[in-house]
């Protein structure tokens, strides 16, 4: 599933307010909860954190992809949080993370979940769009950048 199909401007937050892993994940979950996409906030948090405890999803180049399967959703849901300053998310390269892609999928929807993760991986490889997204000043602008990246062949 394409990021532009998964996300809307309402599911993107520019300027994350928190600075610890747990609180960032909760802040991302709050975005999808606000859109009525999650039935059980605590369950969603526990499911994402339980994956996070196996190995940090803080990757390289400022990208983090907290994700998990959860019965708290009935479709694949996602949110994007952006921090221009960067946050310590125990990333693989030890550098601060700037772009946080949250994905939560119901247990029986692994296909779309895998495809969405693959699209995030693809997006992450393009430093130009990564930087543009990190510097986006609004959720609308961030969404436009994602859409542009997809149509311009990242």
């Amino acid at each position: 599933m394409k990021l532009s199909h998964l996300l809307t401007p309402e599911l993107i937050k520019v300027g994350l307010e928190n600075s610890t892993k747990e609180k960032i994940i909760q802040e991302l979950i709050d975005i999808v909860v606000a859109q009525g996409l999650v039935s059980d906030t605590d369950q969603a948090f526990m499911d994402v954190m339980s994956r996070e405890l196996q190995q940090s999803t803080g990757l390289e180049a400022g990208i983090a992809v907290p994700h998990g399967k959860s019965t708290s959703v009935d479709q694949l849901v996602g949110a994007l949080g952006i921090s221009e300053e960067g946050i310590d998310f125990a990333s693989l390269d030890g550098k601060p993370s700037h772009l946080f892609f949250l994905l939560i999928a119901p247990p029986n929807m692994s296909g779309p979940h895998v495809r969405a993760l693959a699209n995030i991986a693809k997006f992450s490889q393009n430093s130009r769009y990564r930087n543009m997204l990190t510097e986006a000043s609004s959720s609308e602008e961030a969404y436009r950048i994602i859409k542009q990246a997809e149509t311009e062949d990242i």
């Binding site: 693989l92 296909g111 895998v114 993760l117």
Partner: peptide, 27 residues
Amino acid sequence: KTLHDLLKAKIFVEMEEMDYQHDLEED
């Protein structure tokens, strides 16, 4: 192939790759 790519990109851990492969086989 995509599951292996996600493992290589460190988005997946090994257990997760096996778990998702099992799910996709079930599908």
